[in-house]
Structures are given as structure tokens and as C-alpha cells.
């Protein structure tokens, strides 16, 4: 989806940090995040565990646990309104309504003791604009996520369904109130690959029809390539590169992004060895100074001990690197 230069973002994060404590020196889970999501587009947030991608999602839903919420700083604008300073009561209006969420484990989002129909209707009832027969609307909701024989399914409890079905129900519930922004945090990680494929297709289709924006959090580049218009790559609490999906895959500018892309095996060919990134991602308290990636980077130089600035490397494509790559991937 192309976004117009003049369009205002649906969601904008400016200098958002989440620290373990209030001081500016406290260790940060995420640090100085700038991110925009425009209406109708899908932004992928890729990173390894501990990179802060889930924290970012929780921060913009204002769903951080109280201790971390105290350490939240920066500005988060939703539809022009700063929600970083909202109170819990005011947030509730946004949470289930205009912003919705799908999490990794569908069982955690569903209540095991109530039937699917019960939980769907609860969501529908909260919707002020919903009129008409709840039962019919619940069946409609299940149909929209392509659950076969939705009428009998309404009486089912979560444990009577497969993982893929459950995740569709979660999808149906989060879409009952036609959200404008959907945050999907690794929604397919617990699913089998053939089931994942179908769920992603469904999600993409629903997104197109409902014209909602989506923040897709994942560690899987294959999923990003399939789903996203724009990609932000996270490493050790920072967005190290952001750009249009084709640029990220074909012309990665950050050494981390390129190394990561190259280390993923593909079905097309089997090299003798895979290119690797040495070491492992730093812990929250053990992050190196300067460029966070420099101890593992193939091109680390003394300059990298200073914090890198965000450089524009292409149209809407920028990277936090002193020596960004400019060449086509695979060309050099």
C-alpha cells in the first residue's frame, strides 16, 4: 500500500523509551523509538528475543505492567492525540475499540470456561454501533474468519478447537469492533506452517477489506516478506533500520539486517555453510556503548564506539550506522 506524503499518520511514536526506573540512565528495554504507522498499511517489526519488539507493542497499547509503565517516556500520538499521558480509564476506550491486539498464544486470550459464542457476543455487546441480533452477528464474525459451520462452533469451548481455529476466533473477537489499528504480536508462532500460511492470508485479506493499519511483530523474515509494506528492524532496544519492504530485503543498509538475512537458510539451495553472526544479542544491562551491534559486526571500526546517527540511505529508508551498505544484496 502506498502512503501519500501529505497523509497524517494514524500512530506516531516520538523518542519513546521504556526504562527500568525513572532516571535517564536507567537501563532501557527500548530507547528513542521513532515510528509512524499510516492508515491501511502494515508495518513489520522484526527482531530477536530481547530486542524490545514486544515491549514496543505493549507500550503503544499502554498495556505495560505498572512498573514499566512508570519508565515510559516520549510521545505517542494516536490520531493526533497524545496517548502517552492518558489515564487508564481513557485508554480503555481505545484498547478494545479502535486499537486491537492478537497475541502469540490464543489460549491466553480466550477464557477457557466460556463458550466461543459467549466471548464473541461479549465483544459485540460492547460495541455501541452494533445493532441487531447478537447471535447472527456472532455467526457473521466467525464466517468472516472462515470458520466452517460457525453456528455449531458458537457452542464450542476453546479447548475443543485446534490452535489455528482458536487463533481465528481471537482474530474474530479483536475485529468485532472494526479496529483502525491491529497489533499482531507473533500471532502465528505457535501454529503449524500450513496453518500459519492460511492465517496470514486471512489476516491480509481482512486488513484490505477493513482498511485497518497493522503492526506486525515477528522474528520471521518470511512472514515479513509476505505481510508487510514497511519494515523496522530492531536490535538491542533500538530501531536500527527502517524502510520499504523491498529495500530492506534487496538493499539492506545496516550490517545487522544484511547478516541476519543471509543467515536464514532457504529451500532453493543448500550452501556448505551458512554465513553467521558471531556471539549472541546483548542482555538489557549488558548492552555495549556506541553502536549496539559493533561487537558482532563484520565492519566494526573505532568510529562505531560512538552512537551512530540515523542516515537517510534511500527514499523513506534510513539506518543507524556509521558505514551503511549501499549496494544491492548479493551484488557485492
Amino acid at each position: 500500500m502506498m502512503t501519500l506524503e501529505t497523509e497524517t499518520p494514524l500512530l506516531e511514536m516520538r523518542e519513546v523509551s521504556v526504562r527500568l526506573g525513572r532516571g535517564a540512565q536507567a537501563p532501557a528495554l527500548i530507547e528513542n523509538i521513532d515510528l509512524k504507522i499510516f492508515p491501511g498499511e502494515t508495518v513489520g517489526l522484526v527482531g530477536e528475543s530481547g530486542s524490545g519488539k514486544t515491549t514496543l507493542g505493549m507500550a503503544l497499547m499502554r498495556l505495560l505492567p505498572p512498573l514499566l509503565d512508570q519508565g515510559l517516556s516520549g510521545e505517542i500520538f494516536y490520531d493526533g492525540e497524545d496517548i502517552a499521558n492518558l489515564r487508564a480509564g481513557e485508554l480503555a476506550r481505545l484498547r478494545g475499540g479502535e486499537i486491537s491486539m492478537i497475541l502469540q498464544d490464543p489460549m491466553a486470550s480466550l477464557n477457557p470456561i466460556f463458550s466461543i459464542g459467549n466471548q464473541l457476543k461479549e465483544g459485540l455487546r460492547l460495541n455501541a454501533t452494533a445493532k441487531g441480533n447478537l447471535e447472527a452477528r456472532a455467526i457473521q464474525a466467525l464466517e468472516s474468519v472462515r470458520i466452517p459451520s460457525p453456528k455449531t462452533r458458537l457452542a464450542n469451548h476453546p479447548h475443543q478447537m485446534s490452535g489455528g481455529m482458536r487463533q481465528r476466533v481471537v482474530g474474530a473477537i479483536s475485529l468485532t469492533r472494526s479496529p483502525r489499528l491491529l497489533i499482531a504480536d507473533e500471532p502465528t508462532t505457535s501454529l503449524d506452517v500450513t496453518i500459519q500460511y492460511q492465517f496470514l492470508e486471512l489476516l491480509k485479506d481482512l486488513q484490505k477489506r477493513m482498511r485497518m493499519a497493522m503492526l506486525f511483530i515477528t522474528h520471521d523474515f518470511g512472514v515479513v516478506a509476505k505481510m508487510c509494506d514497511r519494515v523496522a528492524v530492531m536490535y538491542a532496544g533500538q530501531i536500527v533500520e527502517e524502510g520499504p519492504v523491498r529495500d530492506i530485503f534487496n538493499r539492506p543498509a545496516h550490517w545487522y539486517t544484511r547478516a541476519l538475512l543471509e543467515s536464514v537458510p532457504t529451500v532453493d539451495h543448500a550452501p556448505e555453510r551458512l554465513p553467521t553472526i558471531p556471539g549472541s544479542p546483548p542482555t538489557i544491562t549488558g548492552r555495549p556503548r556506541g553502536c549496539r551491534f559493533h561487537p558482532r559486526c563484520a565492519n566494526a571500526q573505532s568510529k562505531c564506539l560512538e552512537p551512530p546517527v540515523d542516515v537517510e540511505v534511500g527514499a523513506k529508508h534510513h539506518a543507524k550506522c556509521w558505514f551503511p551498505l549501499r549496494a544491492q544484496r548479493g551484488a557485492a
Partner: peptide
């Protein structure tokens, strides 16, 4: 299965036999 193994390539062609149905 092969179609479901998503390649890290945004311009990958659509598979001819995409997976369908439940296990």
C-alpha cells in the same frame, strides 16, 4: 509445505498449490 515455507523475498511468486484445510 513448500508453499508454506515463506521465502525471505517480498516478490516471491504465489505458490500454485497453497495449503488449505485443517490437519
Amino acid at each position: 509445505l513448500l508453499a508454506a515455507a515463506l521465502p525471505p523475498d517480498p516478490d516471491a511468486p504465489r505458490p500454485e498449490l497453497p495449503p488449505q484445510g485443517e490437519i
